[in-house]
Design a protein around this nucleic acid. Structure first.
Lengths: 200, 200
DNA sequence: CTGAAAATAGTACGATCGTTCGTGTTTTTC
DNA sequence: GAAAAACACGAACGATCGTACTATTTTCAG
């Protein structure tokens, strides 16, 4: 798959750079991503790497974008292939939980949220836009589960997705700081209790 | 108040340094705290500030400690003056929620969690120990509410405090990225629903 | 195959980082 | 008030940061 001619050499190495940058930033955060380290990781000169992006900030934006893209491909895309309603909503949640497990070393977007939540600038805006989109995707899936009658009609989809978000955050948190398996169990139990309270 | 002789000049300026450092690190994170900026903030020379701590890491540890201390003083201490049981547990949660509101610019401990959750070292260990203590405090308060019969006897206190933690994380998250007031309302509703599911 | 264009390397810059060291000043102790 | 101890300063260090500028190499179209 995706063995396109890659248009040009430059575009190909740019992809390589972003790939390595994603790996680094997932562990060190976008602020901990330096062009020197990155150049060494791809086996290029600093200036060679730098030339692909007008500035460090543009590089960070590109890497953040890649992070959001990978998350979407791992979680949202598969879920969208499921039928609307509770099945899809559960697919989103399960995919999200799996994502947390697969990325125990660190999730780029999550780190970015903490890094830029109260630091104005293009990166802050990009992070907010990303998270907002993701939240509204979840809310939309919740709304569909209400429309299909699988969740009670008086369910507030925004409230529900807020709480789902909280459980995912707690899972993310405990996975890193404490015991991943226990955290997963607790998160799943929390989700079940949450749904149970909203069944018709 | 607190016009103690401050033991010595050195201890007094050390307190001043940590106070300014706390303010900076709350916004920029402990990794974003530089000795140069800090020196300028306290009106001292870099080396003068540095001399109070053997290393930057020791400074960071001291600031983290101060952060935990302030959180404890704001949230836990007042709650411990309430009677055991649901009242105290609610005091913990309310205090926590208030803390998030009062620290919209940024919470040092929360930032530290993200910064060191997957970076080994003394700071990681200190963060984990702090959060672990806080979690067990919450769990203990939950257990007391079970013992008093205000929550169902089959309630799992660890599970419950996991979910409370998640709601607080979501509140923290949405307060920074989205609308603080809406987030607070959603968090409170989530707590009520959570308790309602565990009432006898 | 050739010439233009794109991609990469090399070098150097000013700034800032944490840290060390020697010296001077202030505080504490007797 | 003098001696001792604590404290603060200023300069300098090696390292690394992002970035600019100029060559050199590589790619691609005709």
């Amino acid at each position: 798959m995706s063995s396109q001619p890659a248009s040009s050499k430059g575009a190909a190495t740019r992809e390589l750079i972003i790939d390595r940058a994603y790996a680094i930033a997932s562990r060190q955060g976008l602020e901990g991503l330096s062009i020197g380290d990155l150049a060494q990781a791809v086996g290029m000169s600093k200036s060679g790497v730098f030339a692909h992006f007008g500035s460090r900030e543009d590089l960070q934006l590109a890497v953040l974008d890649e992070g959001g893209r990978r998350f979407g491909e791992f979680v949202l895309i598969p879920a969208l292939r499921k039928p609307r309603g509770l099945v899809r909503l559960r697919a989103i949640i399960d995919g999200w939980f799996d994502w947390v497990r697969e990325n125990q070393h660190g999730c780029l977007v999550m780190s970015a949220i903490s890094e830029y939540d109260s630091r104005p600038g293009p990166l802050h805006d990009a992070v907010v836009a990303r998270v907002q989109r993701w939240r509204s995707d979840t809310t939309r899936a919740t709304q569909m589960a209400i429309d299909s009658g699988e969740l009670r009609a008086d369910t507030d989809p925004q409230q529900l997705s807020f709480e789902i978000f909280g459980i995912a955050l707690a899972l993310h948190h405990d996975t890193r700081l404490f015991d991943p398996k226990l955290a997963r169990t607790q998160a799943e139990r929390a989700i079940e209790r949450l749904f149970a309270a909203h069944f018709p």
